[in-house]
Amino acid sequence: MFYCRVVGESQERLTTHTIDFPYTRTLGPVFSEFLTGMRDGKLVGIKGRDGKVICPPTEWDPETGDALGNDFVEVGPGGVVTTWAWVTEPTPKHPLDKPFAFALIQLDGADTGLMHAVDAGSIDKMSTGMRVTARWKDDRIGHITDVTFVPEAG
């Protein structure tokens, strides 16, 4: 029968294996509007059946499942942090390469939270209920990382 040792620090032979897939995704009408907005420096939500504004926008009503029209609404650029987490050691996949906060941000004019990064500098600058605002990259391509958020001045 098999005998499995737990391998310690001085493991005998570590092999490396990489998977590497370049995906190109089509966006459909709703994400196209959202990411075109990103490129143009605008945050875009969509109106749900009950009139609530959803951001990031969905193609369907989260409550009823009905298809939504093209009732897009510009939201932000400011918003309120409804919850947050302080990332001490960012991974190479994170949008910032220094400690930052992931937060759910309810953008002005929206009724749902957008998960995004807040570049606050230190954990002391973060609190639930604080206001943040969009900080746009100069070179935008229509991607969720065209924007990050920073604490609102004042």
Binding site: Y23, T82, A85, P95, F102, T128, H143
Partner: peptide
């Protein structure tokens, strides 16, 4: 979500931390 969350590197610990903070608050 491959459009809005994967490109942010939204990881399980960060997401759980958002939930924990919401519960604490």
């Amino acid at each position: 979500d491959p459009y809005t969350l994967t490109p942010l590197g939204a990881d399980p610990v960060s997401l759980a931390a958002l939930q924990a903070r919401a519960m604490l608050d």
